[in-house]
Design a protein around this nucleic acid. Structure first.
Lengths: 231, 231
DNA sequence: TTCGATTCCATTATCGATAATCTATACGTT
DNA sequence: AACGTATAGATTATCGATAATGGAATCGAA
């Protein structure tokens, strides 16, 4: 319940010239997200405003705002007068994500293909490489990180701001459940499955890239759907 | 600046058995949205927390929360220590919306086709009818309302909660710019363009319905894209 | 014991005031 | 006059306290 190292939330930022726009709400939000992602706050955990405020040494206000933001990002859910708790990510919901993600990424691939720079191609190649490296050491989690990053790069390369915001709001990186399934799969194969996408982008063919991305996501969607039925 | 009729924000709700879960933040949010949509708050208008609070007879807190929600919904944009203003909906942004919307609605059509009830078909038919009625009286705005509703019904019929949330966050109804363009078009033709979609859904063919929806949206996307170049 | 009403407690929702920060204006120096 | 700096006013960010609410525990009657 107590904390000592967490109390320095605000760096007065005098010293370096950079203006350190510190907003309490932001800091608190990040802190909570970390805890959700690393499992400190498991799904279902109640997040009590006053308790968090006390722990962080702030007042209730900023905590409340942080929680509201988190609710907007679907990390938590809140009911009036009843507080907030970490959201349960159901398998059923995960299944619903895939068709949406497939559709969005198809658009991303199509639009990104004509906007690829050498640098972007380089980043993608290097993420792919990292995926393989992780596959060899059997590190499913690390592979997932690079996997997500690979897709994110493409979405951002689309240059479509709406698309980017929309994709980010899917919180792909937070729905880590897949890693569980992946660990049962062939990591090397998974890494290799990204190559056709990269190829499509390299030759600048939007139709190919889009189609490959869609199929890629749909593949995992089917995988998850199958698992969810088994359960 | 002053207001008299707007001060009764909370109905104590004693009397009728119904529990009137009134949350100040919610009421204020709705109020502001109304004003944005009806043009009282034009794009660029500054929304000053204390001023709104004074006008509504509340404290700054709930107003602040309402504004934060609105920022999440992309109705307004806020900068730290600099306040909020009504967002400018640029034409460029509007152009970017269409590919995303097309992709999402294709999924919606595909998934909805197998879940159509008599009732849903009825609702869609009636919206289509209303579109025609509006077309005949040359009422572009009313037609737009039913147009949006038509699409919304399909998205909701998909049963995919993620998809529904995602589509709603596009705020299709708020990006009313299209109505301007539409008024220059043949309203009857626009209404009629919804019929193939309805047909696809009626025969329960997801592929057809999905494809029709995509093409439908892409059509208007191209229209807007063309206009945006002209400007 | 079991059901319902009542009281108490934890927590959220709101308030009013203060601190921090921004923008623009006024001022002084060159 | 042009420029940079200081000051004032407006506005947001945060605080600490109070009111409103919901849920659980308690009590009493059947």
């Amino acid at each position: 319940m107590e904390s000592n190292d967490t109390n320095t939330l605000i760096q007065s930022s005098k010293g370096d010239g950079t203006i350190q726009r510190t907003m309490l709400r932001e800091v608190i939000r990040q802190r909570i997200v970390e805890r959700i992602l690393d499992g400190t706050y498991m799904p279902g955990t109640r997040l009590v405003e006053s308790a968090i405020a006390r722990e962080f040494g702030t007042s209730q206000g900023p905590v409340r705002e942080a929680l509201r933001d988190l609710a907007g990002m679907r990390f938590i859910e809140s009911e009036p007068h009843r507080g907030s708790r970490v959201r349960e990510v159901s398998l059923a919901e995960l299944v619903q994500v895939y068709p949406v993600r497939a559709a969005l990424e198809e658009v991303a691939g199509r639009e990104a293909a004509s906007r690829m720079s050498e640098e972007t191609i380089g980043s993608l190649s290097s993420e792919l490489e990292e995926m393989h490296r992780a596959a060899e050491s059997g590190d499913a989690h690390t592979q997932l990180v690079h996997d997500v990053r690979f897709h994110q790069i493409i979405v951002e390369a689309s240059g479509n701001q709406i698309l980017i915001e929309m994709w980010n709001s899917l919180r792909v990186e937070a729905r880590t459940l897949i890693s569980a399934i992946k660990s049962g799969s062939d990591l090397k194969l998974i890494a290799e499955m990204h190559r056709p996408i990269l190829h499509g982008l390299q030759i600048g063919d939007g139709e190919v890239a889009g189609r490959e991305m869609r199929q890629h996501i749909e593949f995992f969607g089917d995988l998850v759907a199958r698992v969810s039925k088994t359960v």
